Computed example of a mutant assay.
Amino acid sequence: MSSLDSAKYPVEFEVNGEKQTIRVRAADILLYTLRDNLGLTGSKSGCDNGDCGACTILVEGFPIKSCLMLTVEVDGKQMTTIEGLRNSPVQNAFVKNQAFQCGYCTPGFIVNCEGLRNKLPHADKETIRVWLESNICRCTSYEEIRNAVKDVFSLEK
């Protein structure tokens, strides 16, 4: 192992309203920094290649798959994880519509929908459909998820 492999760099960011400064290797993946260094385990590792969306977080308000981002890339940025969205309208709609089965994908869906709500608060059905294509539910709770999102955007079911 070369000295570059073990070198650590300071990274400062805000997550769920709290400022953090940690030291990470240049190759550290954000998902694992959140889980292993900060104890924010709501974001899950489902595929580690950006296909499933279970690791979705908000970076500067935009949904990002944290398995595809290096921790050093969030230096100076603001992030929100599922832990920072307790009792959000999206989370409450998911509970009301029972939009989950095993729950593994649920944090990613909620965070992604929260990003949509923040960026496009008047999204139509087609925009919502396209936006949600970046997340996968292996238990096939899609109808309940669509109903929850329609509730959030006050669309007819």
Score class of each variant (00 low, 15 high):
Ser3Glu: 14
Leu4Ile: 10
Asp5Trp: 00
Lys8His: 09
Lys8Met: 05
Tyr9Ala: 02
Val11His: 06
Val11Thr: 10
Phe13Gly: 02
Val15Gln: 01
Gly17Lys: 12
Glu18Ala: 14
Glu18Pro: 02
Gln20Val: 14
Thr21Gly: 09
Thr21His: 03
Ile22Ser: 09
Val24Thr: 13
Asp28Gln: 08
Ile29Lys: 08
Leu31Lys: 01
Leu31Ala: 03
Thr33Glu: 03
Arg35Ile: 08
Arg35Lys: 06
Asp36Cys: 05
Gly39Val: 12
Ser43Leu: 03
Cys47Met: 09
Asn49Asp: 02
Gly50Asn: 05
Gly50Val: 11
Asp51Tyr: 13
Cys52Trp: 14
Cys52Thr: 07
Ile57Gln: 00
Leu58Asp: 01
Val59Tyr: 06
Val59Leu: 11
Glu60Met: 11
Gly61His: 02
Gly61Thr: 05
Phe62Glu: 12
Lys65Pro: 01
Met69Tyr: 11
Val72Cys: 04
Val72Gly: 07
Glu73Arg: 10
Asp75Met: 07
Gly76Thr: 12
Gly76Val: 12
Lys77Gly: 03
Thr80Ser: 08
Glu83Asn: 03
Glu83Gln: 07
Gly84Phe: 12
Leu85Val: 11
Ser88Arg: 11
Ala93Met: 08
Lys96Asn: 10
Ala99Tyr: 05
Phe100Thr: 01
Gln101Phe: 11
Gly103Ala: 11
Tyr104Lys: 02
Cys105Glu: 07
Phe109Asp: 05
Phe109Lys: 05
Phe109Thr: 06
Val111His: 03
Gly115Trp: 04
Leu116Trp: 09
Asn118Phe: 07
Asn118His: 11
Asn118Met: 13
Lys119Arg: 13
His122Ser: 13
Ala123Phe: 03
Lys125Phe: 06
Glu126Trp: 00
Thr127Glu: 15
Ile128Val: 12
Arg129Ser: 14
Val130Cys: 11
Trp131Asn: 07
Trp131Ile: 02
Trp131Pro: 02
Trp131Asp: 03
Ser134Gln: 13
Asn135Ile: 10
Ile136Ala: 00
Cys137Asp: 08
Cys139Ser: 06
Thr140Gln: 11
Thr140Gly: 00
Thr140Cys: 01
Ser141Thr: 14
Glu143Gln: 14
Glu144Gly: 09
Ile145Gln: 04
Ala148Lys: 01
Val149Asp: 07
Asp151Arg: 08
Phe153Leu: 03
Ser154Glu: 15
Ser154Asn: 15
Leu155Gly: 06
Glu156Gly: 15
Glu156Asn: 15
Glu156Val: 11
Lys157Phe: 10
